[in-house]
Design a binder for these strands. Structure first.
Lengths: 139, 139, 139, 139
DNA sequence: GTGGTCTAGACCACA
DNA sequence: GTGGTCTAGACCACC
């Protein structure tokens, strides 16, 4: 298992458990963590990140609800074998919602369409390569 | 002043004040609300939307903090004369953060790069035409 | 809002948050709690049940994940407007699993088919009438 | 001794020792395993199922506690001669509890009374015929 | 007032 | 060792 360079920023305003979720999902999305891989134990992760174990428990629990990971009593937590199959409609809605949010803020900032699209292409590229960045500040 | 077809959805999970902010910013970004235009009064808006007046106060306050609107004691709130000049660095960061969030979720949903870019183009187009929609559900 | 005669048994072996969930779902299933009804506040419920607020938070959170209730910042928790629509396949699977568990234990106890079916009919009747019982001890 | 087609599913959410217990009880309830029959040794079972031996120890221990099997030092484990006599009251309680759980979940899924009873009849039939299935997923 | 997050601990169940 | 639950507090965000 790779070292998983996770890091949380307590001042970001985003809940810590959310930052954890985002970074782990990012690792999985990029392929750095593959189906069946074991995740760091709750206690270990809590210690290295200097957060409370309950916070990690919450992050893992939410990821399990999303179908991204699976926890097994006494064994550990693992990346789920099959990525959850979102209904096509839900996927389009969610995509449209996030894209709308991006478009709105960008327009408010006076960004051009090209500038926005470039930012997105960059983000997609970065995700495929260096999954341990922390891209989430949608709040 | 345009009729401002605002509407809030208490079930969306997004804070009400945030929905209000997003829609007003959307109107301004699209040009439907222009510099100097007067916004509805807090009491009036609270009544028509059936929300708590303090919620409107918070939304207006945040927008003023962002430099998007200006409140004048006893006269009301107005769209700011000059769109706030975001520092270039902050603008790029914010854009990258939102784009990263979109890219991450899309990747986990199994969406292709083209699919994501299409969603964004659609969102930009829609924003330019019907600014009073409510595209924001990033949570 | 009805008084909601909830009660938890710390010695039942079932997690407290699970007992809470079951009883609330039971109230909702029986119609004693209807769509849109407000649930007791987390703090209030925690006090009357003499459990930690976090435990109630967990119960409410799980119910929200199930789509049974909806929580709104600063307003409270409410019974969801639309009961979640389970996919037909999932519903059959879940029903078969629970029925199998019941059949297995009953067979082991030497219960006759009629005896088992009677128990089930009784349970269905009881559920429709007095929703504040505590039927859950599947562990 | 019959081949005992046991199989455990680490993803089911049910404790492994519980799955083992359920399947063995199922074999006994159906008559495939009769009083006095010898069970597989702990080491052998652990190896074929690829589980931790202590897990099998726990399953056998619980079954012995229930009076379903009997372990004899150095000789192995055997199906108990006399099926344990459950007190009538305990039996009714347990049956009612399981039936209540089934009724509750079914009601919330919108299943009709007939649908629930059909599921139960099917489960009873299936149990009588192919006892080595794994019907238990009450979690 | 409401729910949401987090900490610092404890004990239990499972492999 | 692992994850799961619970307590007794705290502070924040929202209405």
């Amino acid at each position: 298992m790779a070292p998983l360079h996770l890091q949380i920023d307590p001042h970001s305003g985003l809940p810590v458990y959310r930052q954890l979720m985002d970074q782990l999902r990012s690792y999985i999305a990029s392929g750095a963590l593959k189906a069946g891989d074991q995740l760091p134990s709750i206690r270990e992760l809590a210690k290295t990140l200097a957060v409370n174990p309950s916070t990690v428990v919450k992050a893992y629990g939410e990821l399990e609800h999303l179908g991204v990971i699976e926890s097994q009593q006494g064994r550990g937590a693992f990346v789920a074998e099959r990525a959850p199959r979102w209904p096509e409609s839900h996927r389009r809605d969610r995509l449209a919602a996030l894209a709308g949010q991006l478009a709105l803020e960008a327009a408010q900032m006076g960004a051009s369409e090209d500038e926005i699209l470039d930012a997105l292409r960059t983000a997609i590229d970065r995700l495929a390569r260096s999954p341990h960045s922390n891209p989430s500040q949608p709040e």
